[in-house]
Amino acid sequence: MENNAILKTENLNLYYGGNHALVDITVGIRKNRVTALIGPSGCGKSTLLRCFNRLNDLIENVQVDGTILFNGRPITGNDMDVVDLRKRIGMVFQKPNPFPTSIYENVAYGPRVHGIRDQQRLNAIVERSLKDAALWGEVKDRLHASAMSLSGGQQQRLCIARTLAVEPEIILMDEPCSALDPIATARIENLIHALKKKYTVVIVTHNMQQAARVSDCTGFMYLGRLIEFGETGLIFESPRAELTNNYITGRFG
């Protein structure tokens, strides 16, 4: 299982000032699979996710020790081109965060910043991304309307389309459904299923049923440690650690 890991961490430690937020995380994320990270609030699952695209760089006082390998190459060094890294590892956030421009502009933003200016190519990318994000049918007649006029679920799918438009290898999702209603959540979950044909997905979620429904592998985190990691079926049916068992059976969390 370690061999075809597209993303690997070895003894990863992260400190927010004096706070030891991630402790000795060693994990391998497999290609074209959906990996879920679960655990109670503050367990470090979002922090771990943000290590993968170096978004923690934006926060002051963060110190990272250990190795993260993306396609076998370390990404934690100062010489790493974080812009290129983020192009190849996209991210969808907890709250939909479309830019306050049109639907079209939101999706075209990524390709544009990467130098694509040809209008027809842009149109094609926008259409493909919106289709892949299962949003095309709903917005194809009003591509130039404000992204803010969409519903929350639509906005989140727009953010997914925005991520798909730059054709990343991995998509990180940080509790992408926590601000959505059940119907919108179901659509995003279906979308995640479809995405794994082309992409590798890592999803952080609060919702254990969601992890069970969408993921192939699951990691359970607690107080900054990765307690258990394995096939989703195994984790949920016969967890090895007692903590995991207590959490998924709802005794705390």
Binding site: L58, V83, N97, F99, Y109, G110, H114, R162, V166
Partner: peptide
């Protein structure tokens, strides 16, 4: 300007200056 705008732009691989200028 909400941090989420910046993060959204960084997450698709825009440079800092592209983020400042366009978002």
């Amino acid at each position: 300007v909400p941090r989420s705008y910046r993060e959204g732009s960084f997450a698709v691989g825009a440079t800092h200056w592209q983020t400042i200028r366009s978002v």
